[in-house]
């Protein structure tokens, strides 16, 4: 049985002056515990697909099911981390990470302790009473990750979470996120336009082509790379090989 099934999803945005088909005929299955990356130039509908999976927008046609239930009814099983951290500046770090639990009514001393432990694991226990604006970009993104994980979602979606960070912070966070998700055996979808990041972090890469967005090709990451942390994977000979292959594929998309 598949964990997440996306079937014939098609989405068109209507505005007064235009019609934009963002996604066309997307069919995709994701297994439990799998780490998937969506790779592709901007404008090929990656964010739109995440919003559809999160149940935030209804696709023009097609279905998305999580464990055989429509995503509308299983909202609490999905965590979604946006491109920027979107921590609420008027709330403390503690209030921010407990927000999800508070909203879905599952804030108990157990879930609260769990969230605080997560924060500690991210090396941020000391900022619990701080305000978001006192934190660096990398710290804020880690807090946002804790906020997303605090509700224990079964499926985690990350929309270009590292794109606004400097390179060093990004490499560190990749390792942190990757090991955290592996430890919890979480299923995850990562959107990125960084080929290296996609190779280093995922089990499978879905390459999208633009206008209209569709699945162009799928790359399965060899086991040798999967078993390594992202940082070490980047130094593996197979990494370079795969990088070249995907690079060429992206180039060919540009030309057509």
């Amino acid at each position: 049985m598949d964990f997440l099934t996306i079937k014939n999803v098609h989405h068109t945005y209507f505005t007064k002056s235009s019609m934009t088909t963002a996604l066309s005929d997307i069919t995709l299955d994701v297994n439990e515990g799998e780490f998937i990356s969506f790779l592709g130039p901007s404008g090929c509908g990656k964010t739109t697909l995440l919003s559809i999976i999160a149940g935030l927008i209804e696709p023009t046609s097609g279905t998305v099911q999580l464990e055989n239930k429509t995503v509308k009814t299983s909202k609490n099983d999905i965590g979604y981390m946006l491109q920027q951290d979107y921590l609420f500046p008027w709330k403390t770090i503690e209030e921010n990470i407990l927000l999800g639990l508070k909203i879905n009514g599952s804030l108990t001393s157990t879930t609260r302790d769990y969230s605080l432990q997560l924060l500690e694991k991210m090396g941020l226990a000391h900022v619990i009473h701080s305000s978001p604006k006192e934190l660096s970009g990398g710290m804020r993104q880690r807090v946002a990750l804790v906020r997303t994980l605090a509700t224990e979602p079964k499926l985690l979606m990350l929309d270009e979470p590292f794109s606004a960070l400097d390179f060093q912070t990004k490499l560190k966070l990749e390792d942190l996120v990757s090991t955290t998700l592996k430890n919890f055996n979480k299923t995850a979808i990562l959107v990125t336009h960084d080929i290296g990041e996609a190779i280093a972090m995922s089990d499978r890469i879905i390459l999208f082509s633009p206008s209209p967005g569709r699945i162009h090709k799928t790359f399965v990451i060899p086991n040798e790379l999967k078993s390594l942390t992202p940082f070490h994977a980047r130094n593996h000979p197979q990494y370079t090989e795969l990088f070249q292959k995907i690079w060429k594929e992206l180039e060919s998309l540009d030309e057509s």
């Binding site: 999160a54 909202k75 979604y80 008027w90 927000l99 879905n104």
Partner: peptide
């Protein structure tokens, strides 16, 4: 910023929760 609402909606927030958690404090 509608992305604040997005964060809340993913947690299953209703419109009134969004108002209380994001709209009102942001406009304070």
């Amino acid at each position: 910023d509608p992305n604040y609402l997005k964060v809340l909606y993913v947690f299953g927030a209703t419109r009134s929760v969004c108002f209380k958690q994001a709209i009102l404090p942001a406009s304070f």
